[in-house]
Design a protein around this nucleic acid. Structure first.
Ligand SMILES: [Mn+2]
Ligand SMILES: [Mn+2]
Ligand SMILES: [Zn+2]
Ligand SMILES: [Zn+2]
Lengths: 148, 148
DNA sequence: ATTGTATTTAGAATAGTTCTAAATCTTGAC
DNA sequence: GTCAAGATTTAGAACTATTCTAAATACAAT
């Protein structure tokens, strides 16, 4: 089993990003981040928990939530809320939007966004716009094929 | 107290929209819709419940959820999910987007949207785009003033 | 009036998330 | 190295939002 210090050294960028927010790199945080990068299907906390348990059977649900929060706090992970259900998590920090399949609920990264300038949004006096979140709704390739 | 048939007659459009989905206009459904139109601040189910109780003290939480679902089903109300918290409801069926104040959580209608053509979104092969949901994030006038 | 269906209701059940407090780990001062 | 302070993990309780269940009520059609 990897020691904390060894595994920490092997992931400099993570260590730094966490340190910037006054947080440490721990095996659990590293594992959670790894799980997210391995399969970028925008899993829920519960899915992250189940995947993380394979390599780290002792990990708890509370820790998964703590780690996800820590990673979000230090800007390594984005939260994605698209429907009533559980929050999903995305380790892709490039500016991108999400395609949500209304049929099966799957989520895909779309490497294209609408910038506040592009959109030419006219807001009533006093509002201060920070960023635009664009969610594309429709059918994923699988569901589109089945719908035919 | 108004009888069912009398109140139903006074709201033709509601009756029709519901009938189109095989649903009836009931005093509860009418009340819930009225609450939403009275203050279009995108209340949660719980807020709708509390407001509806003033004029209809017997109404139950389950009924509020049932009514909201019925109104959504027949296209009279939109669901709005912007954060981890409770779903919000919007009776404005014009095409519009939402401004979400990241500070205080208030939600405003913005009568401007980004059409699939405008956006010129290039999706990978197979995806079928139905509509674009645009959520504007930033500070509302009150919070922007305080932040200065 | 009677019957079948839709709706409402209270409360139980469930899902997702956050909180709590104890145990463990890490870091830094000595 | 030892020790203390603080950070992190953990299990489980608590909490919030939502859905489900089953009985009561209301309605519409015969
Ligand atoms: Mn993503
Ligand atoms: Mn709205
Ligand atoms: Zn799909
Ligand atoms: Zn605000």
């Amino acid at each position: 089993m990897l020691t904390h210090s060894k595994s920490a050294k092997s992931d400099g960028p993570l260590t730094e990003a966490l340190a910037h927010s006054g947080l440490r790199l721990t095996p659990q945080r590293q594992q959670v981040h790894e799980v997210l990068r391995e399969k970028m299907d925008h899993p829920t906390a519960d899915q992250v928990f189940m995947r993380a348990k394979h390599k780290m059977p002792e990990i708890s649900m509370a820790t998964v939530y703590n780690c996800l929060d820590a990673l979000v706090t230090c800007g390594l992970v984005r939260q994605v809320t698209l429907d009533r259900g559980a929050t999903r998590y995305c380790p892709n920090m490039q500016d991108h939007s999400h395609f949500y399949c209304d049929e099966c609920g799957s989520v895909y990264d779309i490497l294209q966004t609408i910038s506040p300038e592009d959109a030419d949004i006219k807001l009533p006096r006093g509002f201060r716009l920070k960023n635009i979140e664009t969610n594309l709704h429709g059918l994923c390739p699988d569901c589109a094929a089945k719908a035919k």
